[in-house]
Write a protein that binds this DNA or RNA. Structure first.
Lengths: 214, 214
DNA sequence: ACCATATCGATAGTGAGATATCGATATATC
DNA sequence: GATATATCGATATCTCACTATCGATATGGT
């Protein structure tokens, strides 16, 4: 059973970093870590780390030694649901879609892409990275039959809303959206936007600032 | 010339959405838009939109009509540097790396990947999506000669810091980091972390919450 | 030409998240 | 076994992004 805690969005986003850090520590045979040292290595405030860990940890940290690595790892994995996998379908087998299909890291994070969909005749029925590509018209049936909860949108912006509507109509509960379009969906459906353009914008601005210094 | 304004990080991240929205409006022949309507469609607060646009716009918005679409597009593109391209190198030609190489969208955002690097002998010297893959040892020479400013890290976590060190040593000014490792770099180097695991965490939690309702 | 109203910019208020501080406590050292 | 100290949890404070409100103004409709 999971503890009934509600982390802030930001805290939640830090969890994968903690997990990565803890796993690495475990590999090195370290059995307990302090929030201070985590904070230093991850460039965070130590109180912040302590609050984050306190929120998901079943046991308290001990003065002088800190938190038990193994337990923390279990707690975080449990909280993030890395143990019970989520099934997903992917729509749009372009360059980005192929990458997502081929990314074996996702399984570690509890995501399992069971099938892909596209309208392009030349791609349909192929098997890419071990996943079959189906024609889009078969999406609804498949999603309903297999009780899939997550849809990944990797199509060009102009088709994103249509695909979203289709996914929602098929009973999907969450959408991972790689297009730049703000999707209109019912309240109970979560849209997680992945905004690569925003990252590029930050890079661009930093470079401009650096240039202007010289 | 760019205006000397400093947007907050969050505002900066919204810019690509505004841009996408405005381009679509332009396609439909719309000449002016109000911050109210943008806010409604993008699910943002109208005052927020107004502040964002005021920060980058050269002209003011007019009551009853709003902002001139064409001008706003120019302003945002100018601000985000979509017009003068940034050259980048990519390190790590795994599934993710291939995807990034193949993503033709990046060019629209001003990013141009000029070369890729990997240590895997079987990949080196191949041409993938029109970009040549070089052995990692040649990175420093190439980056220095071509004055590349951006490095993209798409290698497994355990090698990420080493690659970062190499990039920094080659004179790179910004790193786009797709690994989950918090990189240690000098102050003048910007690290932009792309945290897909965090997105998955959000999806996972939302699903769990939805399940518990029933 | 006038009026109603949508939109704007500016200022003040709110709230979530991050940080600083403090006393308590367990452990390592002597 | 006593003491010094690193670490913890709790509370208070601060910060900054976002939101709500208000008067001003230009434009479309009558």
């Amino acid at each position: 059973m999971n503890k009934k805690v509600t982390l802030t969005v930001q805290a939640l986003q830090r969890m994968p970093y903690y997990l990565q850090y803890l796993r690495k520590a475990k590999e090195q045979g370290i059995e307990s870590v302090s929030s201070t040292s985590i904070a230093k290595d991850l460039k965070l405030n130590d109180v912040l780390v302590r609050k984050d860990l306190a929120a998901i940890s079943t046991t308290q940290g001990k003065p002088k030694s800190g938190f038990a690595v193994n337990e923390l790892i279990d707690n975080i994995e449990d909280y993030l649901g890395y143990n019970n996998t989520m099934d997903a379908v992917l729509v749009g087998v372009g360059s980005l879609g192929r990458a997502l299909l081929g990314n074996d890291e996702f399984e570690k994070y509890g995501l399992n892409i069971v099938a892909a969909f596209d309208t392009d005749e030349s791609i349909v029925n192929q098997i890419i990275s071990g996943k079959q590509v189906f024609p889009l018209k078969r999406l609804k049936g498949l999603v309903k039959r297999m009780h899939i909860n997550i849809g990944i949108i990797a199509v060009p912006g102009e088709f994103a809303q249509d695909v979203a509507d289709l996914l929602v109509g098929s009973g999907i509960k969450a959408i991972w959206n790689f297009s730049l379009v703000k999707l209109k969906v019912p309240d109970h459906v979560l849209v997680q936007d992945e905004n690569l353009a925003a990252s590029l914008a930050k890079l661009s601005l930093h470079l401009r600032d650096e240039m202007e210094k010289n």
